[in-house]
């Protein structure tokens, strides 16, 4: 009777998950203190903070994937996007804020990769949160010095004949990579193509998924 009368097992036979309650850190207490003081002073409200979090949660790489897929299927949009990515993505309905967004197109001869050496600037309003490694000191330090090695660690090995361009972001100027459209996707709809576009492929540390796996 392996599942009976065992303190660490639920009636379904799975182990209980341990409680995740531990004391708040100093910084968590600081966040509560700042938030409550700002609400008390009428600078903001709990409702506004909640709505802001909802908006942040709604941003994700699928937004960028829709932009990429449209660039692959709509030549006029592609031209607009490469000309002024802020305006082109706003026209698609994305609230990308005041920053200048620049689209970088990968081709057969050129691969683009994005970093922010000074901070961790990232087109959050289009792609959502940056991955943790993007904010890491190692990625920020090394990508500008040994990009091919960094890319290889992400599983992207490029022939020597491919030019690698590294783009260092700033708070006011952020980038999105338009990866090269995978071969074998002729005639695909924009929606089907968007499913191939990964977050990392829009940073340059990845490639789109192969159509065989989709």
């Amino acid at each position: 009777m392996p599942h009976d009368h065992h303190d660490h097992m639920s009636p379904s036979g799975h182990p209980y998950r341990p409680d995740d309650d531990h004391p708040l850190t100093y910084w968590q207490q600081m966040e509560i203190a700042v938030r409550e003081l700002l609400i008390e002073k009428g600078v903001t409200t709990a409702q506004e903070i909640s709505a802001q979090i909802d908006a942040m949660d709604a941003r994700n790489p699928a937004q960028g994937a829709a932009v990429v897929a449209r660039a692959w299927t709509d030549p006029a949009f592609r031209a607009d996007l490469l000309q002024d990515a802020s305006a082109a993505t706003r026209e698609m309905g994305f609230d990308i804020g005041p920053m200048r967004l620049i689209a970088l197109e990968n081709t057969a001869d050129e691969h683009n990769v994005v970093v922010c050496t000074l901070c961790s600037c990232y087109p959050r309003n289009l792609l959502g949160l940056p991955p943790d490694w993007y904010k890491s000191r190692a990625y920020r330090s090394r990508t500008v010095k040994e990009p091919r090695k960094v890319l290889a660690e992400f599983g992207v090995t490029l022939p020597d004949t491919t030019t690698v361009r590294v783009h260092d972001s700033t708070a006011d100027m952020r980038y999105v990579v338009i990866p090269a459209r995978p071969a074998g996707t002729e005639g695909w709809s924009a929606d089907a193509l968007a499913a191939l576009v990964t977050r990392d492929s829009m940073i340059g540390t990845g490639l789109p998924k192969s159509p065989d796996t989709a």
Partner: peptide, 28 residues
């Protein structure tokens, strides 16, 4: 903060969860 080009070790290939208090900081 200007760390571009500095020697550095392996890139930590891990995605941590976005904690609620961190979201509150970002929202505020």
């Amino acid at each position: 903060h200007d760390v571009g080009g500095d020697p550095a070790g392996d890139i930590p290939m891990v995605d941590l969860p976005w904690l609620h208090w961190e979201k509150q900081v970002e929202a505020i």
